[in-house]
């Protein structure tokens, strides 16, 4: 008996369920870690644009290859996510469209194209096309052991990259002007951070779907920020929150028949966020309200020698 089946047996799960669960935990964790820098760099919506833009890629990859295999479909998703980010860059560079408007346009257009393509394939009765709809709202039901292993590997690599380059990513996110003056390749570091976010959005598709996967990238970091004033701690907390949200969501949708995974993951993440918003020690609403009741005891802002 392999280690894997042994571990699954101890938990009372089938080996496949066990591997899928580990996969979702790893994806949720890595999405939270990578998402920290997209939140700190104020690019929270860029991940959302990439997420919505995965749909046309999934549909086109399926139409060309006829394959329902996850690696093929995710490769298509990644290519169209990258293409959408390219469009975003071009819109900003060669037109006077503002960043928020450009992002909204990319989200809307790519999502519309994706839904049109998928419903077109379904309407024509192309065999297997019905399964594409799981990319909309997420579903772990059809994940194979090999699929889940791939998600784990990508997640681990993403987290290792963030751990290795935390210093550089923090510098560029906090003060890009200073970083550029000191000779750091700001454009490339930014590009790497956005690309990493796009990758996490793609591997997060089975967990939460194109519409909601951004919640895994944005909500855990924002919740983590409530509890700490240090980037390193924020990365760890966001990873744990993402892991918890992903596992809770997947478990809920497995327990209650007919519920897609994505909405459950979002609900779990929002619960963590709400608690953080209210109860965090310094930045929580409760702590702020307590401080407001005793204004004289807080000489924080006074200039000192």
């Amino acid at each position: 008996m392999s280690l894997l089946t042994a571990a699954a047996h101890v938990l009372g799960l089938s080996p496949n369920t066990f591997v899928v669960t580990v996969g979702m935990a790893a994806v949720g964790m890595a999405a939270g870690v990578v998402g920290c820098f997209s939140v700190l760099r104020r690019r929270a919506l860029v991940g959302d644009a990439a997420a919505h833009a995965t749909l046309p890629g999934v549909a086109i990859a399926f139409a060309i290859t006829g394959s329902r295999g996850l690696p093929v479909l995710l490769l298509g998703a990644a290519l169209s996510a990258v293409a959408s980010l390219g469009v975003l860059v071009l819109l900003r560079r060669f037109t006077r469209t503002r960043e928020d408007a450009a992002t909204a346009i990319v989200i809307g257009v790519s999502f519309g194209v994706g839904v049109a393509l998928i419903s077109g394939l379904v309407a024509r009765g192309v065999p297997g096309s019905g399964g594409l709809e799981r990319f909309l709202l997420g579903s772990t039901a059809s994940l194979s052991t090999a699929d889940a292993t791939m998600l784990v590997v990508v997640s681990l690599v993403a987290m290792a990259l963030v751990a290795a380059f935390t210093k550089e990513a923090t510098l560029v996110s906090f003060d890009p002007g200073f970083a550029a003056a000191a000779g750091w390749p700001v454009w490339w570091i930014d590009f790497a951070l956005v690309a990493l976010t796009a990758v996490m959005v793609v591997v997060g598709l089975p967990a939460a779907g194109a519409v909601l996967v951004t919640a895994l990238v944005v909500i855990p970091p924002v919740a983590a920020r409530q509890w700490t004033d240090r980037v390193g701690v924020m990365l760890v907390l966001a990873g744990l929150f993402g892991l918890a949200a992903s596992l809770l969501g997947v478990a809920l949708s497995a327990t209650i028949p007919g519920l897609a995974t994505g909405p459950m993951v979002v609900l779990a993440a929002s619960a963590i966020f709400t608690v953080s918003l209210l109860l965090a020690p310094k930045r929580g609403l409760l702590a702020i309200a307590m401080r407001a009741r005793q204004p004289l005891s807080l000489p924080l802002e006074r200039a000192q020698p």
Partner: peptide, 22 residues
């Protein structure tokens, strides 16, 4: 030019001055 709500402490900001040598 920077976001002062960023999760860094004074010493962390000063340390950024040493990154180029590192």
């Amino acid at each position: 030019s920077v976001d002062w709500d960023f999760p860094v402490r004074a010493i962390d900001v000063v340390l950024m001055g040493t990154y180029h040598r590192l």
